[in-house]
């Protein structure tokens, strides 16, 4: 059985890295005694897989991880226990159980971001949306890569000091910092928050685990 959890990362803990978050989860799962499956060999590792890495310093209400189980467990029961075992600021928002197979890395096609920023970005946003191509140079695996980021910009709007952007994750993901660079803004302290990860296929789109539009407590359940 596989469990998929959606979780938030906010507050001081946002300054931890993607790898740090993985270790927090490993410890929390052990504390709650979730029957996690382990890889074999001399150095067994728990079978966890995280979706797209969140940049260090960004907040999120749309982080995901998949946990391979050696046995069965009820995600609805585990969610509050895991929230309590995770550091302050990392909260489980929902969980489902299924048979596995799909992977977050492959399935997710776009992320929505909100970026709080000082200054008026409206003209830059307008210009970018009107442009056929936006070529920037960015780093990938230590190498400078120059390419057109315009195709990765699915939606973009600026209102009330918040830049909302939906950015493609495939074939090559576009990061919020790169978007800002493309807009000509490189602020010291943009507050970045990931709000959604979307799976789009055959004209339909959905979230791996949706959140209620209201702030009402989340319903947990099995998808299968």
């Amino acid at each position: 059985m596989r469990l998929r959890f959606r979780f938030a990362k906010a507050g001081k803990v946002r300054w931890t890295s993607h790898r740090d978050v993985a270790r927090m989860w490993e410890r929390a799962l052990r504390r709650v005694r979730v029957p996690v499956a382990y890889s074999g060999g001399f150095s067994p590792r728990p079978k966890l897989s995280f979706g797209l890495a969140l940049p260090t310093g960004a907040e999120s209400v749309a982080e995901y991880l998949d946990v391979e189980l050696d046995g069965a467990a009820d995600p609805a029961e585990l969610a509050p226990l895991l929230s309590a075992a995770l550091p302050v600021g990392v909260d489980v928002l929902g969980g489902v159980g299924d048979e596995g197979g799909s992977s977050l890395q492959n399935d997710v096609t776009a992320c929505r971001w909100e970026i709080e920023i000082d200054g008026d970005l409206a003209p830059a946003v307008e210009a970018m949306l009107a442009a056929d191509s936006v070529v920037i140079t960015r780093q990938r695996k230590g190498q400078d890569v120059t390419d057109d980021i315009r195709p990765a910009i699915i939606r973009l709007e600026f209102a009330d000091g918040v830049l909302a952007a939906e950015l493609a994750t495939q074939p090559r993901g576009l990061r919020p910092s790169e978007l800002l660079a493309g807009l000509g803004f490189e602020p010291e302290n943009a507050r970045v928050r990931r709000t959604h990860q979307w799976i789009e296929r055959d004209g339909a789109r959905w979230e791996p685990i949706p959140l209620d539009a209201t702030d009402a407590p989340l319903a947990f359940g099995r998808a299968s």
């Binding site: 001081k12 300054w15 740090d20 260090t56 310093g57 550091p87 302050v88 600021g89 010291e188």
Partner: peptide, 23 residues
């Protein structure tokens, strides 16, 4: 001093060194 420290964190390596929050 957190409001004065946090703006520095985006510009340093390993910002988690400065946040505390350990269990």
């Amino acid at each position: 001093l957190w409001p004065r420290i946090e703006p520095l964190l985006a510009r340093v390596q390993k910002p988690a060194r400065y946040i505390g929050c350990e269990d």
